[in-house]
Design a protein around this nucleic acid. Structure first.
Length: 481
RNA sequence: GGCGACGUAGCCAAGUGGUAAGGCAGGGGUCUGCAAAACCCCUAUGCCCCGGUUCGAAUCCGGGCGUCGCCUCCA
């Protein structure tokens, strides 16, 4: 049983998809008017884990995440940078998709764009007007909020208690301050499409109702987004969809917590955002990914560079084990009872991991189990059952990677990083020095390699050379080779 | 003013009634030519404060204090 926290009912509910074999997910995607920041990465990574876990649990998943490629912010931005709005959106979408791929986020099954769905949107708005749930005004079409007795349920807002005067109306044609735009007339120098209500563009919320219905049907299983979207975006989306179809659009509403810095929300206006590019310059992409998973998805994540560095150090331990066991075959036979504790743990690992994720996708607990597993594997490695420990470690890391995404993508299939002949010469030279007990020379060679960006470790199985500081470091040149 | 979340060791963080996971940092060991890595041991008699319920509470209830979010574009 998979339990998921539902914003509407304020509690965990069992996931019970209408089609028991298929989970249909809609997540509000980005408005591609600026470079992606860490706040865009969190939901992407979180829902990537949701998909992976549901898939592991045997469901088929259809995951839809939209791009809002036309709205006021894009219009404004395109003016500032003197760039065609379509081109602007395409560039930012391309950057976003490239960065998400680095983070190991699998692309959505469908990534619909607003500009490709004007027909659906116009039909949706027309339907709401026909049903007398929306009205045409001088400057567009508005949804009539007061006609929905359930309005405010999702966000816990009460229409009469919302701060008066905050929703500024600037001489528009709303009948009620809480009404929101379904269609906004646009001047001829701005992007627009013809409609029964004149040339204009969609309001902010209608796109998601139209596109989710188009691809997932009028009712689907999970709807996601950041908590800052609960009101007004999702409240309005829910109201529209219910008004149009007469049914609840999403069985469960999931919302990820926001990312803060020094406990304050990152936002454009405060200028305290951290771009994804800056993160990737500093840390290994998979360290960034798992850092975002180190906290349960609903909990606010207070970002700090120190925190990211600390986390990266922990991940290195996992990756080191992977490097050591990646080519290990599965154990052919396990020792018989009585089995030591570590061996039992290694065998129960995946079961425990999946159980942690069954509980509202608790990736923090899941990652703690991975660290436990690493320790158990190392412990077992030093026993007569070392081969079994290593084989189980390899299998377990692969299983954890399948649902969480924890291993460096480049390393997964490629062999060990091939060192060039010069490096090999140095290592062998040093081995000779050590054999001759010339410790001073041996240490000098090790220092030399260190300065070149490699760490040399003497292990029971021989010298091990690997690029150091794999997970982090801004400003350091890439190792030569 | 309304709605909501959070407050667990130096830092991050899991834990919704049964006697404090995990990571980083720190201390001490084992191993090593020395390191590194790895492993072992130690580091919260206590979970913001005060009451209450209970055999038993970080976990439930009441009251405080503090921080943050939403109510306006925002993942």
């Amino acid at each position: 049983m998979i339990a998921v926290y539902d914003t509407l009912t304020r509690g965990k509910r069992p996931l019970a998809p209408a089609d028991p074999t298929l989970v249909r997910i809609y997540v509000c995607g980005v408005t591609p008017y600026a470079e992606a920041h860490i706040g865009h990465a969190r939901p992407a990574v979180v829902w990537d884990v949701v998909r992976r876990h549901l898939t592991r649990r045997g469901y088929r998943v259809v995951y839809v995440q939209n791009y809002t490629d036309v709205d006021d912010k894009l219009v404004d931005r395109s003016r500032v940078v003197q760039c065609d709005i379509g081109e602007l959106a395409r560039q930012h979408i391309a950057d976003y998709e490239r960065e998400m791929a680095l983070l190991g986020v699998e692309p959505p099954d469908l990534a619909p764009r607003v500009t490709d769905h004007l027909t659906d949107i116009v039909r949706f708005v027309a339907g709401l007007v026909e049903r007398d749930r929306a009205y045409e005004a001088d400057d567009g079409v508005y949804f009539e909020v007061r006609r929905d007795p359930q309005y405010g349920q999702l966000s816990g807002q009460h229409l009469d208690e919302m701060r008066p005067g905050v929703r500024v109306q600037v001489a528009d044609g709303k009948r009620d301050p809480a009404d929101f735009a379904l269609w906004k007339r646009a001047p001829s120098d701005e992007p627009g499409w013809e409609s029964p209500w004149g040339r204009g563009r969609p309001g902010w919320h209608i796109e998601c109702s139209a596109m989710s219905a188009r691809y997932l049907g009028e009712a689907f299983d999970l709807h996601g987004g950041g908590v800052d979207l609960v009101f007004p975006h999702h409240e309005n989306e829910r109201a529209q969809s219910r008004a149009y179809f007469g049914v609840e659009p999403a069985a469960i509403w999931m919302h990820n917590g926001l990312i803060t810095q020094a406990a304050v929300k990152m936002s454009k206006s405060l200028g305290n955002g951290v771009s994804l590019q800056a993160l990737l310059d500093r840390a290994h992409p998979m360290a960034v990914r798992t850092y975002l998973l180190s906290v349960q998805y609903r909990t606010p994540l207070d970002f700090s560079w120190q925190g990211l560095d600390d986390w990266s150090r922990g991940m290195e331990r996992i990756w080191r084990l992977w490097e050591d066991v990646r080519n290990e075959p599965a154990p052919s036979a396990l020792p018989h009872a009585p089995q030591p504790q570590w061996l039992q743990s290694l065998q129960a690992f995946e079961e425990n991991l999946l159980a942690a994720l069954d509980d509202d996708f608790n990736s923090a607990r899941a990652l703690a189990l991975v660290f436990d597993m690493v320790r158990d594997a190392r412990r077992g490695e030093a026993t007569p059952y070392g081969r079994a420990a290593r084989g189980l470690a390899r299998a377990n890391l692969a299983k954890a990677d399948a649902v969480l995404g924890i291993l460096p993508i480049d390393d997964k299939t490629a062999g060990r990083p091939q060192s060039d002949s010069v490096l090999n010469e140095l290592v062998q030279w040093r081995q000779a020095a050590r054999a001759g007990r010339d410790w001073e020379l041996a240490d000098q060679i090790r220092d030399l390699l260190d300065r070149a960006g490699y760490r040399l470790e003497d292990t029971p199985r021989g010298a091990n050379l690997r690029p150091k500081e794999k997970s982090r470091r801004a400003g350091q040149p890439s190792p030569p080779v």
